[in-house]
Amino acid sequence: METETSTTTQAAVEFRGVGLTYRARDGSTLALDGVDLAIRPGEFVAIVGPSGCGKTTFLKLTSGLLLPTQGEVRVQGKPVRGPLKIVGMAFQNPTLLPWRTTLENVLLPLEIVQPHRRLYRRNRGAYREKALGLLQSVGLEGFVRRYPWQLSGGMQQRASLCRALIHEPDILLLDEPFGALDAFTREELWLVLQKLCLERKCTTILVTHDLREAIFLADTVHVMSKRPGRLVARREVTFPRPRGLEACFTPQFLDLYQGIRGLIGEVREAT
């Protein structure tokens, strides 16, 4: 076993020259190419980029659902060789289990991830309370006994977010978690997410198409190029936390917004 302890604090997530090629029957797709990145423990990273550039692929590599075809992914210092237990992932499609109610869906990770799995029977009541609390914070308290097909798309996304959070993972991976929500609900949930992340100090990677969302929530915003995805720009966001929604209207925020917007424009035009 390698136990590298560098003098600086060890990165929570580290990509070293990572490339990923999807192989399919009708040819292969280079989805990511030469991605280098280090994420500090507790850092909130947002990734923005055009559709199909490899953002979901990036998250799957981080979680170990996919293994790189080039380079190496390290999480908490160890090379990733398979799916990790310390991540919580909210997938782009909510992927709730159709035979479970909202509440049962949110409880799922606790039935699988240790030590909760061992304690599940004994702590069932407490776990339920916790799940209900989370569901309430995203405004789903009235729908805990409903099945996924009885929820709207945005409600399913919110339930899926709760499922990613319930077992308090060290690393939180969010793939466009608010994509199906209206602007107001979305902003409400930014605040909820910010609060949770500040409390738990988890490392978070957020993929989003909403640049305001990226800047509002993140410490660092990365811009990804068109496929094959590369990280082409990095911007630090240094506004103090907790941030209020009014931060979105400060000149600094708007400057940053315009800057990154320009970058994305360039990325989109590049051939």
């Binding site: 659902l65 799916p83 990790l84 237990k85 991540v87 997938f91 799922l108 990770p109 699988i112 991830v113």
Partner: peptide, 14 residues
């Protein structure tokens, strides 16, 4: 069985 549903479980280390 949808691979997406399996991925939900796999991502929890199941």
């Amino acid at each position: 069985l949808e691979p997406e549903l399996q991925d939900v479980l796999r991502s929890l280390g199941a």
